[in-house]
Amino acid sequence: MADVLETRQGRRIAYHRTAGTGPTVVFLGGFKSDMGGTKAVHLEAWARARGRAFVRFDYSGHGESSGRFEDGAIGDWFVDAQAVLEMIAGPLVLVGSSMGGWISLLCARAMPERIAGLVTIAAAPDFTEDSMWAGFDVAQKAMLDREGQVALPSDYGDPYVITRRLIMDGRDHLVLRAPLHLGCPVRSLQGTADADVDVGVALRLLDHATGPDIRLTLVKGADHRFSMPECLDLIVTAVEEVLDLIRG
């Protein structure tokens, strides 16, 4: 059963924590995903086997945490993530998947002294603006303005309900429009067959971010889930490489 952290905003954030040596590895999941996903659970198993400190959690409106998904926005989930990170002592290595990649970048920008390393998997920075809003047709934009929400089909289950608040709040948290310095080792992983986040997004992030040690690995044929055994192995390798660099 998950532990629960109550935030200053009154949200109840469910999390699982594995005791071990630091830096603590923290998994940040994707949009409408949860901490029971393949990548999060695989990393937890790796952490237990290696005696590594590890945390996975659900943003509000996701998984076992409180709230409705439709009521949330990037800023809310960023605050949730910060609350989880603040509960953990010592340096942190963030592993951000899809939207979690965006939120991990926000955390790295907001609390650089805490973030010792960063691994992103199909990172989707600024996706509410560059993918959702940019992809809406005239009718969808009119519906969003008129009704405050629009439903988008999803390959992962029920349609995604996209709210006007999600779009507007996203504009307050963009990371590709202003300087983004990442002073820790960064390893980004991206599949070339990703139908949700184009390779161009990974290249744009690589070009935009500044820092002493930022590397991007493209995996031919890997999709957005990035959950095939060989992809899971690459995630572990990236995390271990970052941890080795921190120790070194």
Results as ranks from 00 to 15, higher is better:
residue 74 I to E: 08
residue 204 R to Y: 07
residue 187 R to Q: 09
residue 239 V to T: 01
residue 76 D to T: 14
residue 208 H to P: 04
residue 91 P to V: 14
residue 219 V to Q: 08
residue 6 E to S: 15
residue 235 I to K: 05
residue 237 T to A: 15
residue 157 G to M: 03
residue 59 Y to R: 02
residue 22 G to R: 06
residue 57 F to Q: 08
residue 243 L to S: 10
residue 112 P to K: 11
residue 103 I to N: 09
residue 72 G to K: 01
residue 100 G to H: 01
residue 71 D to H: 13
residue 153 P to T: 04
residue 120 T to A: 07
residue 93 V to L: 08
residue 91 P to Y: 14
residue 133 W to G: 08
residue 213 D to F: 03
residue 100 G to F: 06
residue 99 M to W: 10
residue 136 F to T: 03
residue 139 A to N: 07
residue 84 V to R: 04
residue 144 L to N: 07
residue 155 D to P: 13
residue 105 L to T: 09
residue 98 S to Q: 06
residue 233 D to T: 15
residue 52 R to E: 10
residue 184 C to P: 10
residue 72 G to W: 00
residue 24 T to A: 10
residue 195 A to M: 13
residue 176 L to R: 09
residue 173 H to A: 03
residue 162 I to T: 01
residue 224 H to C: 03
residue 184 C to R: 13
residue 204 R to V: 00
residue 118 L to A: 04
residue 213 D to R: 11
residue 41 V to L: 14
residue 197 V to S: 05
residue 234 L to D: 04
residue 14 A to V: 06
residue 150 V to S: 04
residue 34 D to A: 11
residue 28 L to T: 13
residue 20 G to I: 06
residue 6 E to A: 13
residue 190 Q to K: 00
residue 169 D to M: 03
residue 119 V to F: 07
residue 101 G to M: 13
residue 61 G to W: 05
residue 21 T to I: 02
residue 28 L to A: 14
residue 144 L to P: 04
residue 58 D to L: 02
residue 189 L to F: 07
residue 39 K to P: 09
residue 121 I to G: 02
residue 228 M to Y: 15
residue 80 D to R: 08
residue 98 S to L: 05
residue 111 M to P: 07
residue 171 R to L: 13
